[in-house]
Amino acid sequence: MPTIKIEGTGEQFEQTESQDCILRAGLTAGYGLAYECNSGGCGTCKFQLIEGEIEEPWPTAPALSARDIKKGRKLACQCKAKTDLVIKMRTDPEYAPINLPARFEATLSSRRDVTSDIVEFCFQAPDSADAKFLPGQYAMLTFPDGRGPRAYSMSNLPNGDGVWEFWIRRKPGGEVSGALFDELRVGGRIVVDGPYGHAYLRAESERDILCIAGGSGISPMLSIARGVLMDPDMEGRQVHFYFGGRTPDDLCGLDELKVLPGFQERVHYHPAISMPEESPEWTGDTGFIHEIVENQLGNELSRFECYLAGPPPMVQATTKMLQLQGNVPTGQIHYDPFY
């Protein structure tokens, strides 16, 4: 079992047999290793190898630039220790897990079509162990035969019944989402490793809430909205929920929001589509979701606690708009680009 030491910090942890990368081994041990996506896309988990040998199954992960490769930078979410290691990497208490991640095999208890390409998958943890996470977080899913992992955000709320619910979109030609759709039936098994992620609901914030979802970004935004409406301490908060799809067929989530207590008074649901040429019957908003948010909330934006999820270009354009046009402080923007 290799031991990994982080240079100059006194922090060290072990990578156990079942752990598949340095990053998740460190987080599971409770250390605040810097990360965001867990998927090789964001570059936050970059480190420098000082001593020891690693396995790097995906050396061309998109987060590594030619400059990173030249300088010998690696991604902790894509590398596994082969021997004891010394690494140089940023750790910070803000990245330390609030609920320690755990890895377990769960059973599919139900699946339901939400739209033509989004399915709700509900997994049951063994012995109904508490599903401990914060609304807005995600877990890594891996097939028992090793395919994966991929990150998927929970759409439900933490619970004592061991239920982990995900809304997953089939990516055309996608390996893992395709296999989930085509192979996984009720009773089937999947390895869950989580929770991870920093775009979780800040229940202590007094601000109203702005949720902005694109495509499959609906999953964590549903969890956030549910979290706000079900938490008695957040009673005074309004939720502005913006959801962008390509066509009206992509729009979903309203039925689930409507059944929440206080929906009528507190939730403002704004759907929009980006390909109106395909749906002449659509009379609602059209265009990119960040432009619609800017047009409608413009100079009010800085009064919101903002949560964003969806494809990276949508999350980047929206973050840029919130910071530059909306003057929203970085600390009020919580995002997960779905690399």
Binding site: C42, G43, T44, A63, S65, R67, K320, Q323
Partner: peptide, 8 residues
Amino acid sequence: AVDFPCVL
């Protein structure tokens, strides 16, 4: 911004 994780 040139290299990840910087985007803005």
